[in-house]
């Protein structure tokens, strides 16, 4: 059975979406990644990745109500699907396998 491995950015997007919860939208997801990893996120790149993840069935999106602080524009909420969760677990398992048994990465060594 083929595994659904994710790129590092896709993995971060999915994990941040899970961390934010049900009302996760683009800016919130980007903020979560910036706060946890210190990595600056381009919103356009985040939306491109979210579109790709949605096309692959890893997330679903829904449109919310327009708000004045957004210039009357609606939010697009994202939610991770069971398939997305499976992809996260498979990617994690693959990364952990790669991680183990590397002497340079053992504690106390530089």
């Amino acid at each position: 059975m083929p595994r659904n491995l994710l790129t590092d950015f896709e993995l971060m997007i999915l994990l941040a979406t899970l961390r934010v919860g049900d009302d996760a939208y683009g800016a919130q997801i980007a903020r979560e990644i910036e706060q946890t990893s210190g990595r600056s996120v381009l919103l356009g790149a985040a939306y491109a990745a979210l579109d790709r993840l949605e096309q692959n069935g890893y997330v679903t999106s829904s449109i919310g109500e327009p708000t004045p602080t957004r210039g009357g524009r609606a939010k697009r909420f994202f939610r991770v699907t069971p398939r997305g969760l499976r992809a996260i677990k498979e990617t994690q398992a693959a990364l952990v396998k790669l991680w183990t048994g590397i002497p340079q990465l053992k504690e106390g060594r530089t």
Partner: peptide
């Protein structure tokens, strides 16, 4: 020239705000 997505445009405006 950008993507036709009011989610992204709204997010940018909100972040500026």
């Amino acid at each position: 020239f950008g993507r036709d997505d009011e989610g992204l445009t709204g997010d940018l405006v909100e972040e500026l705000d």
